[in-house]
Structure formats: C-alpha cells, structure tokens
C-alpha cells in the first residue's frame, strides 16, 4: 500500500476540518472493509484517511421521537444486536447482516456500504425502502437528504468535497408497517449480491396494502425505487395476480449489466422472483402486527 496519513478526530467538527484541510484525496474510514481492499489494490491512493470511529455521535443507535438515529460508523454487529430496531425493521437488519462474514460484520457500517456506492450494497435497499434520510456534515454545515439521493452511479456519490454522512434517521414504522430484504447469491454466504430486493409495506386492518416501497439492488447503476412495483401492491392483498404484476414490474424496471456476477437476462428474472418472495415476507410480518 502506498503511504498515507491518518487521523482519528474526536468530534464531527474536527473531522470536517481534517477533510477540508487535505490537499489531495481524503477518505473517510468507518469499518474499512471496502476502503482497505481498495487501498491495497491501488484503486485508491488517498493522501489522508480520517477514522470516524472515535467520534461518539457516529457510533450507536438512539431513538429520538419518531426516529431511529443510527450513527454512520456503527458496525453491523451493533445493528443486529439492537432488538427494537430489529423488531421495527427486520429488513434493514437483514440487509446489514448480509454484508460479508461475521468478521466483516464486526466492522462494516451502513454509511460505508452506502458511500462505497456499489449498486449491490445489501444494506441500502431496505434503508431506502424505509424512507430514511442521511444527515451530512461538511464545510458548509449540516444538511439532511433522502438516502437515495446520495449514490449517483457506481463508485460515485453526491457528497461534495469534505462532506460525510454523520447519521441516518429512519422514521419509526406506522401500525402494520414492516419490511423484508432478500438477495440472491450463488453461495449461501460471502458473495456480492447478484440481485437484491427490499419491500416495505403498510397494510390496513383487512390486509390490503395502503403504502409500499420496492427497492432493487444490483440491477442498475444505483439502487432503484420501483414505483410501478409499489403501485402493483397498493390497494391489493397479496394474491397471485398481485404477485404476478409485482414480478413483471420489478423485471421491467431492471437495467442491469452482464458481469462476472450475473448476466442481464438472469438478473432481470431474479429481480422478479425476489420481489415476489420479499413482498410475501413483508406482508406476513406486517399482518402479524395487526
């Protein structure tokens, strides 16, 4: 690995200053599970690494009114262990849980998974499906944006120089709202998603869907919010016809590539399969909250 400087600020303000003061490329280190691989391979040669794990507000999960607030550098293992978050959004925890091995879980964070800007990031679809926002700090102060506004292409984000995600705010679920995340990989573990799909639904007392978000991963340059798929669910119960429409809507939305992890044709088919299966789980979970 080429030489680099390292700093571990104690506050967000110090981190902003460190990032702003860097002459060359400065990278944020939270879990490091993507960053270190990129450093070693030479794909990235930053001048400065800013380690966020010493900033207390960036680690941990707290509840503030109608929101769960998740520190950006919180490792996966802490999210999985948070019972109230897991109960509220099992799909988010499923997505986080699927990032790499137990060892990766000990380090990897949602912010890292998001800002690495891979279309296949497992934690991102369920977070978008939950209509979460990200609080961003930078030289011009703080701003809050929808999570889906951050990734703009493979490896590219809308964050300006010196900006970084401080925390995520996830609105707590309404009555009979729940989610699910599924991904397909060739093995049972350790692979990058060929396709990922998060479904977040809200049902009425009779089991009819009154709100939904369907988000696909790894089938386009960024995560896709598939409105047509959500529309296929809203106003319906989960019958065969609804599932078929959802399947088709998911397939139609895909704009995948062929690469070593999957072909265009295969990814499109699997997007439909996963949408159906994830919806079935999300409906069942939401209905169980009645």
């Amino acid at each position: 690995m080429p030489r680099v400087s390292y700093t571990a600020p104690a506050t967000v303000d110090e981190a902003v200053k460190a990032l702003a003061g860097a002459a060359g490329l400065a990278k944020v280190l939270s879990g490091g599970t993507d960053l270190l691989v990129q450093l070693k391979s030479g794909r990235l040669a930053p001048e400065l690494i800013v380690d966020m794990k010493r900033i207390p507000e960036m680690i941990g999960i707290r509840e503030e009114g109608e929101f769960f607030v998740i520190g950006a550098a919180t490792p996966g293992v802490m999210l999985s262990a948070h019972e109230r978050l897991e109960h509220a959004f099992p799909g988010i925890v499923e997505g986080v849980d699927l990032i790499g091995s137990t060892q990766i879980q000990g380090r990897a964070s949602i912010a890292g998974n998001l800002c690495n800007a891979s279309p296949a990031a497992d934690s991102v679809p369920p977070v978008i499906a939950a209509r979460a926002t990200a609080v961003i700090a930078g030289p011009n102060g703080r701003r809050e944006v929808a999570v889906e506004a951050i990734v703009i292409g493979p490896g590219r984000t809308s964050l300006a120089k010196g900006e970084f995600v401080v925390e995520f705010k996830v609105p707590k679920p309404k009555p009979r709202q729940c989610d699910a995340y599924l991904r397909f990989i060739p093995r049972t573990e350790m692979d990058i998603a060929v396709v990922g799909c998060a479904v977040n639904v809200t049902l009425d007392a009779g089991g009819t869907c009154i709100d939904a978000r369907v988000v696909l991963g790894a089938v386009a340059p960024t995560q896709l919010i598939v409105d047509e798929a959500a529309q296929a669910l809203i106003g319906h119960k989960l019958d065969a016809d609804t599932l078929a429409k959802l399947d088709l809507a998911a397939q139609r939305a895909c704009k995948p590539i062929t690469d070593k992890r999957g072909t265009i044709e295969y990814r499109i088919k699997i997007a439909g399969v996963l949408a159906r299966r994830a919806a079935a789980i999300a409906f069942e979970r939401a209905a169980a909250r009645a």
């Binding site: 490091g32 270190l36 380690d51 990766i104």
Partner: peptide, 28 residues
C-alpha cells in the same frame, strides 16, 4: 488480504474481525 478467507481473524474489543482489513493505528 481482502477479508474473504478469515485466516487473519483476531478478536478486537470482543468482536471477531479480519486483521487484514484493519489498520495497525486503529489498535490504539
């Protein structure tokens, strides 16, 4: 060297991690 094999596993503050994906300075 990329976190895929686990042969470098160590326990860091009670959690198992890949030491190849951790900087030495982070051990402070």
């Amino acid at each position: 060297g990329s976190g895929d094999c686990g042969a470098c596993s160590v326990i860091l503050d009670g959690k198992v991690v890949c030491s190849c994906l951790m900087l030495g300075v982070e051990a402070e």
